[in-house]
């Protein structure tokens, strides 16, 4: 019976490939990724004061835009942390006004973290979360508002 044979063989092929492509393949790739690139494979998690505060790849909207750089909200994913350098420089002025951190420092920070959408030209951008973490790391013992964020990260509870 030819039709029965075709059905039985194609069904078995589907099941065998479900096992190989759907289970073995992703599990093997996970094993390799976890062994060789644990930081990247787990989402490039960011730490401040020994507490995990998020992923460097995922932006955080801040409730205090006078002290921290804010992400943009009208991107495609809505969660990317990247802002244009022009936007970062404008935000640096606001942060300078409310904290007295020198513009030279802030502009230098932006400059050092600038990347380009076309590798060496195109849209110049910075990762807002990365800037914020560097500022908190640098100023938490000198500026009260950053100290509060820094200490708050290590307290449990909600």
């Amino acid at each position: 019976m030819k039709g029965g044979k075709l059905i039985s063989s194609t069904m078995r092929l589907a099941l065998v490939l479900a096992l190989i492509c759907g289970v073995i393949y992703p599990v093997v790739v996970t094993g390799i990724g976890q062994a060789f690139f644990p930081f990247q494979a787990n989402g490039e998690m960011a730490q401040v004061n020994n507490a995990t505060v998020g992923s460097y790849l995922i932006g955080q909207s801040t409730n205090n835009s006078h002290y921290l750089f804010n992400m943009r909200n009208d991107s495609a994913s809505g969660v990317d942390p990247d802002i244009t350098v022009a936007s970062a420089l404008a935000q640096a002025q606001v942060i300078h006004n409310s904290t007295n951190i020198s513009l030279t420092y802030l502009d230098g920070l932006i400059h050092n973290n600038t990347r380009y959408s076309m590798f060496f030209f195109g849209t110049a951008y910075v990762d807002s979360l990365s800037l914020n973490i560097q500022i908190i790391d640098h100023f938490h013992s000198r500026i009260a508002v950053y100290g509060k964020i820094y200490d708050g990260l290590n307290t449990t509870g909600s």
Partner: peptide, 13 residues
Amino acid sequence: AVLLIGLGVPQSL
């Protein structure tokens, strides 16, 4: 897949 993990695409269960 391994190349992309190295470049920041997560792979975890």
